[in-house]
Design a protein around this nucleic acid. Structure first.
Lengths: 104, 104
DNA sequence: GACTGACGTCAGCATGGACTGATACTGTCA
DNA sequence: TGACAGTATCAGTCCATGCTGACGTCAGTC
């Protein structure tokens, strides 16, 4: 069942740059400088998007000297993956049962 | 691994109304009139969104007299669910291994 | 303490997307 | 065959969103 929290999270991930950031952070914890290098985005643009991800609770920060490291919160992605898995299962069952509401 | 196809699909689903439509269609095949009733959206707005979903290949139509029934294509949601499951697994492994790139 | 690097914030701008009203087309019925 | 229901398309409007440049703050170095 998709909740309004899921809806907000999907909107956050709907931006190509934010989705790229999340994909990169899924593989390793990176700092802002790394992310600028990997994505090719300008530093301020990247900061804007990291703020969106942070405020959505998708990532959290870890200061390291003057660098700021970002790490993904796996439980957030796991939860969303679970919601989509449920949706997919429901959709498959409906397709197989050919569940169809009568014409009004 | 999230592909650009996934990115486009996530953008399509990022709209609250379209996500609601997809959730409804996951449970049963419905016609436009049903969807107007269930969502409370205006008919032309709903048609606009159904067009977006149709063109993205998320739903397909089935004429039934003067009614148009919409059904979800479960394989599309299954594929997306799989991509998110992979992302979640990668994220969990990274968190557990504490994989962190060195400062530049 | 001055300077530099890292990075976060903000205002301004451009544009893509969502909604609306109008309208056209198709199917059904009396 | 005309009226009506169902639904798709389109143009116009508005605003949310993404990007940029400028700049401020903080940490590290000399």
């Amino acid at each position: 069942m998709l909740t309004s929290v899921d809806t907000d999270l999907i909107r956050v991930l709907a931006d190509p740059l934010r989705l790229q950031i999340v994909s990169l952070l899924a593989r390793e914890t990176l700092c802002t400088t790394h992310l600028v290098e990997e994505t090719g985005a300008r530093q301020t643009n990247l900061s804007n998007h990291l703020k969106v991800l942070r405020e959505a609770g998708v990532v959290e920060t870890e200061p390291c000297g003057r660098f700021t490291y970002y790490r993904l919160r796996p439980e957030v992605i796991e939860s969303l993956a679970g919601s989509f898995a449920d949706l997919a299962a429901t959709a498959r069952a409906t397709a197989e049962n050919n569940t169809k509401r009568a014409c009004p």
